[in-house]
């Protein structure tokens, strides 16, 4: 069953077209990757899904309904980890989680969640003194505190070292196994390959292809997802230039 449906989404800022035509569906319980070059419209797409930005046109359905119909209740269904969001540097881990828990009607257990994201030893550490990986773990915890059905994670592992990325991947799999559907925005192909059940490649604000990572590789006759991804972009850009007869 589709938990998210996006069809012909379009979003512009003045004369800049951030998203021209994006279409995909996300199935319940999967890890769905949104891939694409910088500036392709990935973040704008998830901002529309999470109700933070109103689309210009096209349709979005979250569990069968327009996100706007939910009003603020949407955020009880969707936990959103923003690409660029920090906390006050002196706010401690446990205080941050406690504060966010108070914003939801049925939050998860604070201590359990801190344990689950592996920050038990850092619970009294201020945000400003956390490592990059620890900050990301905290932001994942904050996206999950409200017990959402869907977690949208934007550029989660950017800036992390290989070990930090591997740990974060493990955490994301655990979250999926607990029944949360995950939408993962990334520009790392190895990350998409290891983690995602399906991916959608977005380029210049348009969906190039939506498929499984392995199918993308097979279709390109390539060896790595990187080859296949670049091949898919070439095909997409090539077809974009051709005028229909």
């Amino acid at each position: 069953m589709s938990i998210i449906e996006v069809s012909n989404l379009r979003k512009t800022y003045g004369s800049t077209v951030a998203v021209a035509d994006v279409t995909f569906t996300v199935d319940e319980g999967e890890i769905f990757g949104i891939l694409g070059p910088n500036g392709a419209g990935k973040s704008t797409t998830v901002e529309c899904i999470t109700g933070c930005e109103p689309p210009d046109s096209g349709q979005i359905r979250i569990m069968g309904r327009d996100p706007r119909e939910y009003g603020r209740h949407l955020y009880e269904l969707i936990g959103y980890q923003l690409q660029t969001s920090a906390l006050p540097p002196t706010l401690r881990v446990q205080e941050a989680v406690t504060m966010f828990a108070a914003l939801y009607p049925a939050p998860r257990d604070i201590n359990e969640l801190i344990d689950a994201v592996g920050l038990t030893d850092q619970r009294r550490k201020p945000f400003g003194k956390l490592s990059g990986g620890q900050k990301q773990r905290l932001s994942i915890a904050l996206a999950l505190i409200g017990n959402p059905r869907i977690a949208v994670l934007d550029e989660l592992t950017t800036g992390l070292d290989p070990e930090g990325r591997r740990d974060t991947w493990g955490l994301i799999r655990e979250i999926r196994d607990s029944g949360v559907t995950i939408v993962l925005v990334t520009h790392f192909l190895d990350e998409a390959h290891r983690l995602c059940d399906r991916i959608s490649v977005i380029d210049h604000g348009r969906t190039a292809i939506t498929t499984t990572p392995d199918a993308l590789i097979r279709a390109a006759g390539g060896v790595t997802l990187e080859d296949a991804y670049l091949h898919a972009l070439d095909i997409h850009r090539g077809s974009g230039k051709e005028q229909p007869a």
């Binding site: 959103y80 923003l82 969001s85 920090a86 906390l87 006050p88 966010f100 939801y104 409200g146």
Partner: peptide
Amino acid sequence: GGYRENGVLRRLGATPVG
């Protein structure tokens, strides 16, 4: 101003209480 700069306002905007 700090909350705007750090994205705290945006992050809180994506919660049920706003």
